[in-house]
Structure formats: C-alpha cells, structure tokens
C-alpha cells in the first residue's frame, strides 16, 4: 500500500523491513511457502536446469556420463523422426484444438439458450473429459476398429465405407482427434460461465440497432468471449502436446510412426533406448516449441482478443 507520509530520510520499505513484526511475517511466509519452494528446487526448476545440462551429455544411466557438446542437438536436427514427430504433434494439436474449441463453443451457446435440463446436458458433455484415461483409450480403439467398430458400422449404415482409422497411416491422427474432441467437454463449462457473464444490455443495444442473430453473435458474443476463447485455446493446445500417453496405449506411435508425437519420442529415447542425453535435448526442443507457439498466440491475440474493462 502507498506510504501516506514518507519519513525524513528512511524510505518506507526500509522501515518495514526492519520492523520485527514484518520480519516475523516474512519468516512465516517462507515457512508456509516452503513446500512449494522445495518442490520447485526438487521437481521444477532444478530438473529443468538438469535437463539442459544433460542435453550436452551422453548417458545411458549405466555408464558414467560423458560430455557430448552439441552432438545431441546435431543428431536431433539430422533426425527425420524428430521432424516427423514435430509435424504429427502440430497436426494433432491444431486439429484437436480447432475442432474442440468450435464444438465446445457451439454447445455452450446452445446450453446458454435458457434450455431445460441444463444440468443434465452439462453432465453429459463434461463426463468424458473426467474419465479420460487408459480405459477410454481402450474404448476408442474399439470404436475406431475398421470392421466391427462403432463409427465405421454407423457409416456403413449410410452406405459409406469408413477408413482404416488407427491402422491407416493417413487416418490415424484424425482418429485421435475425434477422440480428443469427445474429451474436450470441460471447456464447455468455462465457455458457459463466460457467456453468462456477458451483460444483457449489450444484446439489447444491438437489437435496438436492428442487428440480426448473426450480427449479435459475431459482433457481441464473439468479441466479448474472446478472452475466454483465448484462454481455452492456449490451455488446450498445451494439453494436446502432452496427449501422447494415450497414444502410447492406442497405437504405440504407429502405423509407420504416423502417430509418433514429440512427447512419445522423448519417452522412447529415454525409457526404451536409454539415451538420456538425447531425450533431454528433445525435451528442450519441446519446451521451445511450446514457448514459440504460446508466444505466437499472445502476439496474434492482440489482433482478436478484446479485454473489456
């Protein structure tokens, strides 16, 4: 808080620091915050630095580590699977975020139309995101089965021959995207909260100006919701980059590495090939990728996100 009457020479901050009461409060602060501070050293910042150091080393865990210089990074930039995994990660991320954001937003708008049974619908849309795990991954292997699976059986009903989803190189990632949209219902809750926060007077004003439903949607709802959409895009994109654990269960990166995500490739290098140095270098590439994508979104956000006071 602002210092109302500064004393002669001593700046307010100095006085506060030397007061025994403030010192006791600061000690309490560090005491209470210590679980997180220790956690940051042991499981956060510490490992991040360690990973950076490790990326300049050769180490299989069994031998003694040896200095590698830039060898791991040179290997990375010459590794076709590295580029393939980046491509797959971006493809899956873009597909699942765009489809997920559009679907969830539209469903949230429908739910915001004063419908009966709001609680029921919300439960239905939200539930898949809660149970997402190995069990639902196995469920989706079955649903995406080319012959006896649910989706292709449904398509066959209309005389359409469905693709080979997880077994066809070109359809493996679209299959994973479908599953991810099914599990993206948690964002509906966030959209709904945002929609309910839009002042009705804005819509009334738009109506007075003779705006139709499309104009109201495009010029009121979308701009007012843009910070919420932005939040969901950023968080679901980061989440999609880490969605590889289910891929591990479903396709193990196949067919022909068509679903090899960057995270999965890191896992493979570290825990199947025990090339800890290379895995660390790849993990820093992933860190950089997330950083670049997020920064890019913040730059783009200036063009379309409106923060209303």
């Amino acid at each position: 808080m602002a210092q109302a009457a500064p004393t002669l020479e001593l700046p307010g901050r100095r006085t506060r620091r030397t007061s025994p009461l403030a010192r006791r409060e600061a000690r309490a602060f560090y005491g209470f915050a210590s679980p997180w501070i220790l956690g940051f050293i042991l499981f956060g910042g510490g490992p991040v630095v360690a990973a950076l150091l490790l990326s300049f080393a050769h180490w299989s865990l069994l031998s003694t580590p040896s200095w590698a210089g830039l060898a791991n990074y040179r290997k990375m930039f010459a590794d076709p699977l590295f580029y393939k995994s980046i491509g797959n990660t971006v493809y899956f991320g873009a597909g699942s975020v765009v489809l997920g954001v559009v679907t969830s937003f539209l469903l949230a708008i429908l739910l915001n139309q004063k419908v009966r049974g709001l609680g029921f619908f919300r439960t239905v849309f939200y539930l898949p995101s809660v149970v997402a795990g190995v069990a639902t991954a196995i469920l989706w292997i079955n649903i995406l089965q080319p012959d006896s699976g649910l989706i292709n059986s449904f398509l066959r009903f209309f005389g359409i021959k469905g693709p080979g989803w997880l077994v066809d190189e070109h359809w493996a990632i679209p299959g994973l995207i479908l599953m991810s949209v099914w599990g993206a219902g948690n964002t509906i809750v966030i959209y709904l909260a945002g929609l309910q926060g839009i002042s009705p007077t804005l819509y009334e004003a738009a109506l007075l100006d003779g705006a139709g439903w499309w104009d109201r949607f495009w010029h009121v709802t979308v701009p007012m919701m843009s910070p919420v959409i932005f939040f969901n895009v950023v968080t679901s994109l980061i989440a999609s980059l880490q969605a590889y654990t289910l891929v591990l269960v479903m396709t193990e990166g196949g067919p022909n590495n068509a679903t090899l995500m960057l995270g999965l490739y890191i896992y493979r290098q570290a825990f199947e090939y025990f090339d800890m140095g290379y895995a660390a270098a790849l993990s820093w590439a992933m860190f950089a990728l997330i950083g670049v994508v997020t920064a890019l979104q913040f730059v783009l956000a200036r063009r379309w996100v409106h923060y209303d006071a």
């Binding site: 499981f43 956060g44 510490g46 490992p47 991040v48 360690a50 990973a51 490790l54 980061i238 980059l241 880490q242 960057l262 995270g263 890191i266 896992y267 570290a270 825990f271 800890m276 895995a279 660390a280 993990s283 820093w284 992933m286 860190f287 997330i290 950083g291 997020t294």
Partner: peptide, 12 residues
C-alpha cells in the same frame, strides 16, 4: 508452462 517432459528425465 513447464511441460512435464522436460522434468521427466532428470526426475527419473
């Protein structure tokens, strides 16, 4: 914003 993958290997 730190992806779990970065801390995974050193923690292991």
């Amino acid at each position: 914003a730190i992806p779990a993958e970065v801390t995974l290997v050193p923690t292991f």
